[in-house]
Design a protein around this nucleic acid. Sequence first.
DNA 1: CTGACGATTCACT
DNA 2: GTGAATCGTCAGC
Length: 201
Amino acid sequence: MKALDISFYLNKSVTEIASSLLGKILHTEIDGRITRARIVETEAYNGIFDKACHAYNGRRTNRNEHMYHKGGIAYIYVCYGIHHLFNVVTNEENIPDAVLIRAGEPLEGIPIMLERTNKVKLDYTLTRGPGNLSKALGITKNLTGNSLLNGNIQILDDDYRVSTDDIIITKRIGVDYAEEAIHFPYRFFIKNNPYVSGRKR
DNA sequence: CTGACGATTCACT
DNA sequence: GTGAATCGTCAGC
């Protein structure tokens, strides 16, 4: 079990990375408490050419600054004033590609996740959906810009492999404002996994 | 300074 | 299926 190497994040194809992240482990250590979840759903955001991406057309603000950094760090922002969404920054410096982690399957630290989400018992809503996942793992926007190679947030590989036949590709969720980009096949998830979000959409 | 708007979630019909 | 909650961020004045 080791953290993914920097070369994984520098791949120029953000969709390839989004697909490869399925089955990897999202690990956090917040206030000395470790929680881990296996990634089961991702979405790619393809930089300046993607209308659904915060960096569309070269848009660069305080909020999305970290998307322009070299891959291998976190980009975390607040959505609807409530939810902290976690993204993996990819590609070289000044190319603002990122992968949104939309759902995970809890592996370790489940009591801690329940406490953070004010839940009593484990069910599929614990880490289903990007807002819920971040809440369960204790991810907040003050961790944006952190390295994923070491430190509080890491992505680990335990040699678990997802069969190509079990990877489903669809259009993304919640980006209905993005005109032609609505239909891009940038969402990846593991077939039949109960933690995958929004299956009715 | 002000108004508008979400890469969502949950309760309710 | 529909609608509200809720506030950081950003563009515009």
